[in-house]
């Protein structure tokens, strides 16, 4: 009996997940499968293979291919001040509360190429808080991390997102935070100095420091409920008493095991406070 191509594709995806886990230690089995399937198929195509099955020998025998595979699987689509209302709420609601701390630790999980973490750092700088802030920006995609750390973007991007910056509560000009030249915009050193970029896998790595704010937007949507629970638990453990969590606009913690540990600050914008403390 001829097999449906859909069931063959499903076997291929299982083999890919198995190979990634056992050969490279990256476990994608708790990723939301439908979008993972699309990404794996897209990755095989981008690398010039006719099928996911044809990618497998290279995946097993060519260790150098791993960074490219991780880059292909976490296709970063991010822009500066995406959802400006969320950033505005952070400036107006969270930052005044965070301002009272002598020192601020912030974790952006899944920072991709850095647009969002720089957006946040720019607003912290304008609020006069960046000098006492240390931001940890993490991802599993080393290629994206390298690009993020470089902090060089097309100059056009700064123009395109100038409006978003103003809607987000920016008080100067977006361009004032970059040095512009040769068609590129480089994030100012004063901002970059407060951000550490590091490799961290939300699937397998643990807590690495205590933070006052976790920003993790549009990452959980790629995980199944089991992995979402693990990651939200990780955030809860990482957050100091009264710390804040900011998720993507369509992400929902209501059904998660971690839900009782968070109270909404602004539910519509997915801003939460870790409960269980009075300070």
């Amino acid at each position: 009996m001829p097999a449906k191509s859909a069931s063959i594709h499903s076997i291929e995806l299982d083999l890919f997940i198995e190979a990634m886990t056992r050969r490279h230690g990256y476990d994608f089995s708790n990723y939301a499968r439908a979008s993972l399937k699309r990404r794996v198929a897209g990755l095989a195509q981008k690398l010039g293979f006719a099928s996911v099955a044809e990618l497998l020998p290279r995946l097993l025998y060519d260790g150098d291919l791993l960074p490219e595979i991780l880059a292909g699987l976490s296709v970063p689509v991010t822009k500066m001040f995406r959802d400006p209302m969320v950033f505005k709420a952070m400036v107006e609601t969270l930052l005044p509360m965070l301002a009272t701390y002598p020192r601020l630790n912030i974790w952006q999980a899944g920072c991709a190429t850095g647009e969002e973490v720089y957006s946040l750092a720019i607003l912290l700088e304008e609020a006069g808080l960046l000098h006492k802030a240390q931001i940890y920006a993490t991802d599993i995609n080393d290629a994206a991390l390298a690009k993020a750390e470089e902090g060089i973007f097309p100059a056009k991007m700064v123009e395109e997102h100038a409006d978003n910056y103003l809607h987000a509560g920016g008080t100067r000009t977006l361009a004032s935070h970059f040095s512009l030249g040769y068609g590129f915009a480089k994030v100012s050193g004063a901002i970059k100095d407060h951000i550490s970029f590091a490799h961290h896998n939300l699937v397998s790595d643990g807590v690495f420091c205590e933070v006052n704010l976790v920003v993790c937007r549009n990452v959980l949507i790629y995980f199944d409920r089991h992995l979402q629970d693990r990651v939200l638990g990780l955030f809860e453990t990482s957050l100091s008493r009264g710390g804040f969590l900011c998720l993507g606009s369509k992400e929902n913690i209501a059904f998660s095991a971690a839900a009782p540990h968070f109270t909404p600050v602004n539910a519509a914008l997915r801003l939460y406070k870790k409960s269980g403390g009075t300070s």
């Binding site: 499968r33 979008s35 699309r38 296709v75 689509v77 790629y222 199944d224 369509k250």
Partner: peptide
């Protein structure tokens, strides 16, 4: 998904 729950993505 196969279990008839929705998932979202911000892929290109």
């Amino acid at each position: 998904e196969a279990d008839h729950t929705f998932s979202l993505s911000v892929d290109s």
